[in-house]
Structures are given as structure tokens and as C-alpha cells.
Write a protein that binds this DNA or RNA. Structure first.
Lengths: 224, 224
DNA sequence: GCGACACTTCGAGCATGGTCGAAACATTGC
DNA sequence: GCAATGTTTCGACCATGCTCGAAGTGTCGC
């Protein structure tokens, strides 16, 4: 008999269709209310509420109460990374889905992963940052390189800002099957992309769509 | 309602304690038989068999039939990565486990991996055998070198003995993260270590403990 | 205060699926 | 051939936990 961390408990939390739908919805990065999540999951409000308390108890969600609204969000990037990893396996072993539609294609190119950018663009960006020695990766770890502070300061991003969360983290991309950049730096870069209006979020989707000029600007800064 | 890859299906496969234990056991990289896995999971053989067919159907395992033995293994690194991600969350969220005891330390040094030796000693042994050209490794394959037959004959091990199972196999060591020697040769070496009483198996554990003189003998033969 | 709204708790119904013993099947060794 | 061993299938039992309607708690606007 095995011991150690109770992985079955965590996996079974994700293993219910209603809860899996809720978690997928929360992968967009915005906190949602119980009613919104009930709608996403296709269950009644009482059922949703019961699922949410289970997810809370399991430590997968955080709760922010604001008046009579209660906003549920993913507990952190580690949880997001886990969902992403499970999604990757589901995609790989699942029955080949119907021919990928346009939204799928957009998702593969760029999408939100909790609070940072994922997809081909994000993977390419991390590769390039490592090539240029701005970031350094040891096996699974990613650290700041010597020129990181000045490089990101030019973009208005302060990598020195103290934070509980690690500045850099690797997050496995389900569509490309390679890592992209998570952590506070990943979040700050996504913020910048949206703030500069290089790209906008697709309605009701995790897809992130770059405008032609925005794409040029992004590539100039991160893929040059 | 959400669409896309069926993450609930995959997660629920991992979400059963028996199956989670089996998958954890397989994280070592060695394929195991149904009986071994039943033991690991603490369930009866019929129950284990039922779980295994579900995991197979879900695409999480591969099966290698060899005579009346059927070896189950993880379907690939992506699946292993997913298990690792879930384990990480479970560890972060769950109660902190008790500080690793002496048995854990012993396990890292040397332990049984189904029928052969694993752990630091085993990894060092394989490295040395390859250095001395007794064995030759191409990428993930391990083959017998020119001097293998005479070298092992001196130890009373006949590497020419016909067997369905490969004579040499690489097996990924979970504690060292490098390969050690499996296959009939790996099994024969473990047999010799135990037969010569260089080491004994710890009760109810996979740990293998060398006696002081046994360790010297082992090192003289395999690590010199 | 009193409705309106957001959400949770309670209770009961119900399906899914985990469990094992017994028996069937398959392969090996003699 | 027959016995021994490893594994799967079958059948029946049973617990877990998902589900929703109805009722209860808390918060806001007026």
C-alpha cells in the first residue's frame, strides 16, 4: 500500500464533470460567482454550491466575498498548471475531436492560462527569452538572467518587486506540449499585452487574439 | 456548458484510491504485473484487473504481454507529468507528511524494483558497467558488450540463457532520476546479491540493506 | 422594517461504480 | 495430458456521492 500525498482526493475533485467544467471556466483567470459557475457547469444552483464547497475544502479554490456576491477563483498557478496538464492528457488520449474549428485554432496560437499567456506565442516567447539569456532555465526551474531586470524595466515591468509567488515558473502548455512562462512575470507580461491593446480577449473564451499591429509589436519586443 | 477535451474522464481515472496507488507505483518507470499492482493498491486481484482495464481504456497505460505475465506501464511521459502535477497540488494542499524516516533514506540507497536492484547503488553499478564496456548503451537501449559473457560467467551468471524477457533493460530510477539495470541480467544480479548474503531485504519494504562486508564485496565486483 | 436577490443547507431519490468470491481462461512446466 | 500459476470475467452486493426541490440564511435597496 502506498502512502504520501493524497493524489486520489485531488484528482477525484477534478473528476466530476460539473466540477471539471467549473475549473475549466475558471482557467480564464477571472473569478466567477456561484450562479455563473452553475450555468457553466450545466447544473442547478444547489448542486453547484455543493461542488464549490467541496473544491474549497480541497484547497483548489479561493473565495472573495463582496456583499452578497461571492467570487470563486482558482487557488493559484499550481492548480492552473495541474488542470493544464490533465487537459493535455485528455486531448492526447481522447477520441479525435471533430476537426478543430476557428476558435480552437485561435486557442492554440494564444490563450489565457489563469493569469498568464499560453499557446504557441507564449512558448515561442519563453524560448526566445532563454535564447537571449534574459531568463535561465535549469531543468524544470526558470530563473532571472543577469540582464532580466534592465530588460523588463524597459517595458515597465519591475521584476524585483517582492512577491510571495515566484517570479518565474514553468507551466506545461497542453497544445504545444512544451513549457511557457507563468509566475508574476508571466502575469505582468500578459497585463502589458492587454494594456497596450496588442491583443484582446475573445468573448466567452480563453482565446487571446492579436491585432496585426499588436502582433508586430509583440514580436518586436519578445521574439526579435 | 463547456466543451473540449474530457478532463473529467481522465481525472476520475486517477481519482480512485486504488488506481492512484497503481499509477504512483508505476511512476518508477518500471512496468509491473497485475499481481504486483494489486498488492501496491491494497485490493484483490479481480478488483485490480478491473481498474487496469479502465486505465487501459482511458489510454493511461500500455500493456506488454510476455507469456503469462502481463506488464503494465505508464503510457508516456505526458501521463507521468500529469501525475506529477497532481501530486504537487496534493502535497501543497494536503497535510504535510511526516518527515522522511530512515526507511526512506535506505530506499534511496538501494531497493528492489520488481525483480532487480534500484537506487543509488544500482545507478552507480550500471554507470560502471558501461564505463568498463561490459555493457553498451545506445540512447535508451542497453546491450551486452564483448566481454559481458565472460565477465558475468565469472560470477555464475549465464547471460546467454534464453529468455523471453530482454536480458538488459533500462529502468528509470525515481530517487536518482537516472537509469538502472533491469531485465533478466538485472534480476540475476539481484539474485546473486541476496544469495551471497551481501544484503538482505527489509521486512515489508522495498529497501535493500547491505551488510558492511557485503557492501565491500559488491563494490569490489561491480564498482571497481 | 420589508421585499428582492444571492447563495447555502437539508432531505430524499437514485445511479454509478467499487468491491470481492467463484469460476473461467491462458500459459508454462512436468 | 495434468497440475500450477497468473490473469480476466461474471454476478451480486453495497456504499458513495451526484442530483434537485424546498426551505433557510445572509445582504442589499428602498
Amino acid at each position: 500500500m502506498r502512502e504520501g500525498p493524497d493524489i486520489a482526493r485531488i484528482a477525484s475533485l477534478v473528476g466530476d464533470p460539473a466540477r471539471a467544467n467549473m475549473l475549466s471556466a475558471l482557467m480564464g483567470g477571472t473569478a466567477l460567482t456561484a450562479s455563473e459557475l452553475a450555468l457553466e457547469a450545466g447544473v442547478s444552483l444547489p448542486t453547484a454550491s455543493s461542488h464549490l464547497s467541496k473544491l474549497m475544502e480541497g484547497g483548489l479554490l479561493t473565495l472573495a466575498s463582496q456583499g452578497r456576491h461571492r467570487y470563486y477563483g482558482l487557488a493559484g498557478p499550481q492548480v492552473a498548471g495541474m488542470i493544464e496538464a490533465i487537459t493535455g492528457v485528455a486531448e492526447a488520449v481522447g477520441p479525435k475531436r471533430v476537426r478543430p474549428g476557428p476558435r480552437d485554432a485561435a486557442m492554440r496560437v494564444a490563450r489565457v492560462c489563469y493569469d498568464h499567456l499560453a499557446g504557441e506565442q507564449a512558448v515561442a516567447m519563453l524560448d526566445r527569452l532563454v535564447d537571449r539569456n534574459v531568463l535561465v532555465r535549469d531543468d524544470k526551474e526558470i530563473r532571472l538572467g543577469p540582464s532580466a531586470a534592465s530588460h523588463f524595466a524597459a517595458l515597465g515591468i519591475d521584476v524585483e518587486a517582492k512577491a510571495r509567488r515566484p517570479v518565474c515558473r514553468a507551466c506545461l502548455d497542453w497544445s504545444v506540449r512544451r513549457s511557457h512562462l507563468a509566475g508574476t512575470l508571466g502575469a505582468a507580461i500578459l497585463d502589458k499585452i492587454l494594456a497596450e491593446k496588442w491583443a484582446r480577449r475573445e468573448k466567452d473564451s480563453r482565446a487571446v487574439v492579436f491585432s496585426p499591429t499588436g502582433k508586430q509589436a509583440f514580436e518586436k519586443v519578445f521574439l526579435a
